[in-house]
Nucleic acid binder design. Structure first.
Lengths: 213, 213
DNA sequence: GGCCGCGGGCTTGTATACAGAAGGCCTTGT
DNA sequence: ACAAGGCCTTCTGTATACAAGCCCGCGGCC
């Protein structure tokens, strides 16, 4: 693995997991020493982070970790609703029914995973990730996929602000199952509606259980 | 201006204007000598281009200019319709009516600019750019704006493939005026519909007058 | 006492030297 | 003659040294 990739992954995780809090200045020499790489690959990592919006240049004083305000969360979900709604609709038109039927059945049994301990819960997140991947593959639009991918980074960061209690995860699993079912049924409008519903509930949950940093 | 910015702008323009054709390999030493900068800022420029999708890494043999296929154009406009449709709707909800009323009036007089020589036509493109900027400002969603901005780079590149005859530009001006009017009227669904109509006609025009490279 | 200007220190931006890896070509064996 | 293997060239990836810019703080001046 390249040193720049290593530095990028390390910094990205530190920011997403809120180990590097908003406002933290990332001086090049300091971070390069901390991560054990030289300044050149570190600069590339910082460029990528800044392009993604996780950091911003602070005019001659290095780059700083960007903040996420309540308005940012609203804007994020507004775009997410647009993109993922369209993605679900396209998947319903173009996707393979059997694939999503299978995912739906697995999602309906997800509560057993959620109620379990941490390793099982990790399996649940993997299942949701497989649904996302299946949708990405079904829509066959690389530009749309890339737009959603760039959003997911921020969304993971926001998710870490909320309390993922078992109750919410159980509801979310049912909502995901509804999306998969609509896609399997080949109903674009229903798939979009199910996605809208899920995202609104997710947003409400995040805003309700918001943990200040 | 930084050397990396200069190299980025030069390469980006060369690619968008089709002076660097798809498949061209951009070796670091070669390009750094051509543009009069060192390898370090040039690498940063190439990273940015690759992140935008204008180039892609060719596994150990530098980066190559990406191609744009017919399917790419379809995918591009599919995403564009989603994003700009939502943007127009949001602008209708949140925008200032007087601003868009003014833009509509100017767009209705645009045929006079289009029929003229090149400097006037440049004014027309500036006018359309002001409409885009007004929509960007009205929606007040930085994530959506950024997603559209990253798309526009590719769209300019595609536009260079089509013949911008006066007839099409006149029609486009009328379509833009319809969008501005719907936004000024505060009608989100109408604004979205007008945008959908405009984009479909643009896509048809591009595909009809497509110039192979 | 407040404001403007200048200098020191630290930061980023750039250039270049070095190392590692990958592809191509030549050679050699079958 | 063809294929496989190794060497060599050339590229990218990394490290470091150098230059330029910016902010902060101090001092003088109004």
């Amino acid at each position: 693995m390249r040193a720049s990739d290593k530095a990028y992954a390390a910094l990205r995780d530190d920011i997403i997991e809120w180990r590097l809090l908003p406002g933290t200045v990332l001086a090049e020499v300091e971070q390069s020493e901390r991560l054990g790489v030289s300044r050149t690959p570190l600069r590339e990592a910082l460029s990528r982070l800044t392009a993604e919006g996780l950091t911003r240049t602070a005019g001659g004083r290095g780059v700083v970790v960007t903040d996420i305000s309540l308005e940012d969360i609203d804007e994020l979900f507004e775009l997410r609703e647009t993109l993922e709604g369209k993605a679900a609709a396209l998947a319903a038109e173009r996707g393979d029914a059997a694939t999503f039927e299978q995912l739906r059945n697995e999602l309906l049994q997800a509560p057993q995973l959620i109620s379990g301990a941490d390793p099982a819960r990790h399996d649940y997140y993997g299942l949701v990730g497989r649904l996302d991947a299946a949708i990405d593959a079904a829509i066959s639009n690389s530009y749309l996929v890339q737009a959603m991918r760039s959003l997911r980074v921020h969304l993971v960061r926001v998710r870490r602000l909320a309390a993922d209690d078992a109750e919410r995860l159980t509801s979310a699993a049912a909502e995901h199952a509804a999306i998969a079912e609509a896609i399997a049924a080949g109903n674009p409008r229903l798939a979009e509606a199910a996605t809208t519903l899920h995202l609104h509930r997710s947003l409400s949950h995040v805003k309700a259980t918001h943990i200040p940093h």
